[in-house]
């Protein structure tokens, strides 16, 4: 079972590398936002450091949305998705692997480049640690919720509009707690309460979302 899951993960990552440019989109998107917004609102450090947590998080959120349309659809169209129901493998495990690869492709690069982006926005150094922790806890939630929306809209043609409408309300709590954590950390207060709530959301999402995704995929296959 582990070998099969490993094989799926390796294949997904290999496909992502082969798509090259497409996989770089989240990063390009992050930096487009980070560079363009100061041009729009003015480069003053006070203003930028105040809006930095929100901007970084909104950029991370939109970056994770980019790849969602392709999370399950190519597999549905080329018939590799229906193979998930054959044999001895629990579909939930495969769903988990797919969501993990989505996070590795969209979430992880954003986390790795977040310190650089934070510097460009004059985010206070005290808040950087909390920003990183909030991204580490929060971006997997984005991948999970996005995956659920992608699975639910799989049967609709061009589901991207519906997909965004489904995702946005569900990620509001993530956005509130995550940016809240970074903001209070910037004011040199404890962000523990925010981060704990974010952690609770992650636990909830990890437990329930793969089940729901597996059910939604099954519906769409039928």
């Amino acid at each position: 079972m582990w070998r099969a899951m490993g094989a799926l993960l390796m294949r997904d990552l290999r496909l992502a590398i082969r798509h090259g440019g497409e996989s770089l989109m989240p990063l390009i998107f992050l930096f487009a936002v980070i560079i363009l917004v100061p041009l729009g609102v003015g480069p003053g450090p006070t203003l930028l450091s105040a809006i930095a947590p929100g901007m970084l998080w909104v950029a991370a959120l939109l970056a994770s949305l980019l790849a969602l349309e392709h999370l399950f659809r190519p597999d549905l169209e080329d018939g590799t998705l229906e193979q998930w129901w054959l044999g001895h493998l629990p579909v939930i495990g495969l769903v988990f692997v797919r969501l993990l690869s989505h996070w590795l492709i969209t979430g992880l690069p954003v986390i790795l480049f977040a310190p650089l982006a934070a510097q460009m926005l004059y985010l206070p150094n005290e808040a950087l640690g909390v920003l990183m922790i909030s991204l580490l806890i929060g971006t997997p939630i984005l991948s999970l919720i996005g995956g659920l929306a992608a699975a639910l809209t799989l049967g609709t043609n061009r589901g991207s509009v519906l997909l965004s409408i489904l995702v946005f309300p569900l990620v509001v709590p993530v956005l509130i707690f995550a940016t809240g954590a970074v903001s209070v950390a910037a004011d040199e207060l404890s962000a523990r309460a925010h981060l704990t709530l974010l952690g609770a959301l992650l636990v909830l999402a990890v437990t329930l979302v793969p089940l729901a995704v597996a059910a939604a995929l099954k519906l769409n296959i039928e």
């Binding site: 294949r11 496909l15 169209e77 590799t80 229906e82 054959l86």
Partner: peptide
């Protein structure tokens, strides 16, 4: 069990 349907079940990019 193995199933081979109308769809090829392979990845074109690979």
């Amino acid at each position: 069990t193995a199933f081979l349907g109308h769809l090829p079940g392979v990845k074109g990019e690979l």
